[in-house]
């Protein structure tokens, strides 16, 4: 019972403070992984891959996935309800004052600070994904051999994927599917 309350509360906080769409939940989920010990960093990247390749909002998918891994299907449902509850309350209130909210300079000014901050938060979260996926920090710290830091195959795939995404903007599912096949063939 306790675990459900905790799940609801943790995801309620994420729903309240993660401003700026899907990936904005990422830094919060990483922090939660450290403070709660409910899941590993590796689960986070699996979760992003799953969220990007299934329908539905990424933030909701991430909540369901973490909830399931912590406490089964009921956990998934409760984490999802937790992440959407703040929005339901806030949007119902804002609905009544929509015009005022849209024209408020205060809201615009707050976002003047929020946009760069959210970018910084997601960049930091992205760095740990790069570290887990492409670099081998743990081996490097033991051997201090720079060649151990980078796995060449992965680094090349990373640069290739980024170039393709930047130039052709393919759907994320396509990138994930191609990567899965490449991973099996090239033994990543």
């Amino acid at each position: 019972m306790m675990i459900y309350l905790q799940l609801f509360w943790e995801f309620f906080k994420i729903g309240l403070f993660a401003v700026g769409g899907g990936m904005a939940t990422l830094p919060f989920l990483q922090k939660l992984a450290v403070t709660s010990g409910w899941y590993s960093q590796a689960l986070i990247t699996d979760m992003i891959a799953v969220s990007e390749s299934t329908p539905g909002p990424v933030g909701v998918n991430m909540a369901t996935y973490v909830g399931c891994s912590v406490a089964g299907v009921p956990g998934g449902i409760i984490a999802t309800l937790g992440v959407i509850t703040p929005a339901i309350i806030i949007v119902n209130i804002v609905s009544a004052y929509l015009e005022k909210f849209r024209e408020s300079t205060l809201v615009e000014n707050v976002f003047y600070g929020l946009r760069p901050a959210v970018t910084g938060l997601i960049a930091a979260a992205g760095f740990s994904v790069v570290e887990a996926g492409v670099l081998h920090m743990d081996v490097f710290l033991q051997t201090h051999n720079f060649l151990d830091l980078i796995e060449l195959k992965k680094l090349i795939w990373f640069i290739l994927m980024y170039a393709v995404i930047r130039k052709y903007k393919p759907h994320p599912i396509l990138c994930i599917a191609v990567s899965a096949v490449a991973g099996i063939i090239l033994l990543f």
Binding site: M23, E52, I122, V130, W157, F158
Partner: peptide, 19 residues
């Protein structure tokens, strides 16, 4: 496992693009 390990690299590239 091989597939997931390559997908992680792809996710890192997707995040870089988002950022």
């Amino acid at each position: 496992r091989h597939a997931l390990s390559a997908i992680t690299v792809c996710v890192a590239a997707l995040i870089l693009d988002t950022v």
